[in-house]
Amino acid sequence: MVSDPFKYFMNQTPNQSEQNPTDSALSTQHSALPSRTQHSSLPSAIQFRNVALKINQKDLVSGLNFDVIRGETLVLLGRSGSGKTTTLKLINRLLEPTGGEILVESKTTSEWDPIELRRDIGYVIQDTGLFPHFTVERNIAVVPRLKGWPEDKTNERVRELLNLVGLNPDVFAKRYPRELSGGQRQRVGVARALAADPPIVLMDEPFGALDPLTRAGLQREFADLSRRLGKTIVFVTHDIREAYTLASRIGLFKDGHLVELATPDEFAASTDPEAKAFNDSIKS
């Protein structure tokens, strides 16, 4: 057993160590959304106002009232079917609320053109959803191309991002997703979500399908990365350990309701029965 998962991970991708991405490489602002620095006066990137979604007489989520603070990593925690993924999809308008409203950068999602909105929000899903017929390079370049970036700028950006997620561009750029390991695929998924430098990134159990060691390595690496990038991140998981590793705040879902919203320290001491159940599961 390897004691340090990060070290194990480093051994898997030795080329990672030679790259030392700088924040400046990522700070280029390509998004239509206002950047963090430009709008520091506005604390909430995303606001849920009494949001509900009912499909076939069934409440998937209801009574959602919370803000996502700019630059934080909000982890939505809950069991399967508790409504956390639904909540995520309401943000980039993959789902439309049947009640209440969601504000992204002070504008309700219904006012946003959904195509425009999605191009300005990074999105990572569990099965990566990489396009099997595209090379790594083209997968990462999808959103910049949709946005009509010039070719050389896109190419430069792709190399930057591959370095950032620890994949040597000379080795991986021309490969197809099927030629990558699960962990490498997920790195490409993250790079793709960051490609157009979106201020908000949505992540739906991105590390859920990975083996525990690879997952632990990626989680630590990602925690580090997200702190450096200063993106607003909404991260869905059912893994309480992952929540503690990554979260600036944890939002707990049960049966379509947000039952707890707290910092990790507060969450560890929560009296909510569902929060207790989660906390108990990692006590040894």
């Binding site: 099965d127 990566t128 959803g129 396009f131 949709l146």
Partner: peptide, 27 residues
């Protein structure tokens, strides 16, 4: 076509036409 791929395409802001021509038809 893998639903995850389709969801990713939508989530990245492809229009229906782009999704059809760039993702669904090639696959």
């Amino acid at each position: 076509v893998d639903p995850a791929v389709r969801e990713a395409a939508r989530g990245m802001g492809m229009t229906d036409w782009q999704m059809l021509t760039q993702v669904e038809l090639p696959l």
